[in-house]
Amino acid sequence: MKFMLSRNQFFLLLFIVQTGSSFFSFPAPFVNAAGRDAWLLFIVSAIFHYMLLLFYERNYDYFTMGPFVSWLYKGYWLFVVISYLAYVDYTLAVWGFPKTPQYIVIGILVTVSLYANLSRAETAINLPVLLIPLILAFLGFLQFAWGDVIWTNIFPIGQITGTEWWKGLLKGQTAFIGIELYLVFRSRVDIKQNIKGLPLFVYQMTWFLFFFFSVLLTIWYFTPTGVKLVPEPLLFLLRTQEVTFIERLDLFFLYIWTVWTIVTVTLVSFTALYVHRQHAKEKQVRDTIIWHVLLVVLPLFFLKKENVDYLNDLIIYVHLVFAIIIPVIVIFINRRKRK
C-alpha cells in the first residue's frame, strides 16, 4: 500500500481519530471525576499530551513494528473500534432505533468502513475532509449556549483533591485515544513539509482548544450534580437550545456524531489493515472482509449499558499501554539496536 500524506492530511486524520467517538462521551466522566477544577486539570493533561507528541516526533523513526508488536496493535485497534461501535449503537438504540435489531444498525455502520477500506488508500485518508463543515456547524450551534452559561461555576478554584487529580488525569486520557497513529503515519508525511515546531504546536492547540471548550462549556452550563445525571452533556445542551427554524438541534447532531464515529472507525480500521499489510501482503481483500465481519459480530456482545460503560472505563488503561508503554519499549529497543 503506497501513499504519501501531506501535513494537512496527517493532522486532520489524527484530529478526527482523537476526537471521533470520544468527543460527546468525554466531558461528563471527566468533569465527574475532576469536579469543578476539571478545566485546570485538562490544561495539565494537555501539557502531557504535547510532551507525548514531542517525544513521538523525536523518536518516530525508531518505532518500527515487527509481526508480534503489529498483532498487539491490531488487537488494540480492534478493541478500540468495538468499543466505539458498541457505544454508538447503544446511543442510537436509545435515541433513534429502539426496535431495530442492533446487528442491522452495526452492519450498516460497518458497511461504510468496508467500502472505504476496499477503495484506494487515498479515499480513506481524505474521508475526514467531509467532516470539516460538520464540525464547524457543530461548533457554531454550540455558540447558542453562551446566553445560558453561568461563568461563576468555575469558582472557587483550586478545591481539587489528590484523588480527583488522579482520577481526572486518568479520565482525561480518553481525549488522547488515537494518538499512537502519529507514530504509524508520521513516516508517510511528505519530507518536504515540516512538522516539528510551529505546525505541531498549532495541532496541539487545536486539539486542546477543542476539548477545553467542551469541558468549560460543561462546567459553565451544568451544576456538579446535574452533570452526573447527563451522560452526553453536549447533546443535552443542544437539546435545550431554541432556534427559530429547528426544534431539536440535538437530533441533527446525534447523526453528525454518528458520521464522525463512522469516519473514525474507518480510519482506525484503515490503520490496522495498513499495519497488517506490512507483514501480510497477500489476500488483502479477504483480510479486509474478515476484519469487518469481526467488527459486526464482536460489538454485539457488548451492547448493554453496563458493558458499554465497562468498555469505556477499560479503554483508558489499554490505551496507556499502547500509547505510552509499548512505544517507549519499542523505541528504546530500536535505539539500542541502531547504536
Binding site: S119, T123, L127, L130, Y255, I256, V259
Partner: peptide, 20 residues
C-alpha cells in the same frame, strides 16, 4: 428505512464513491 441515519449513511457512501 432509517430517517436521518439513512441519509447520513447514504451521504458517506456517496462521498466515498465520488472520491473513488
Amino acid at each position: 428505512f432509517f430517517g436521518f441515519f439513512g441519509i447520513a449513511i447514504g451521504t458517506l457512501i456517496l462521498f466515498i464513491h465520488m472520491m473513488n
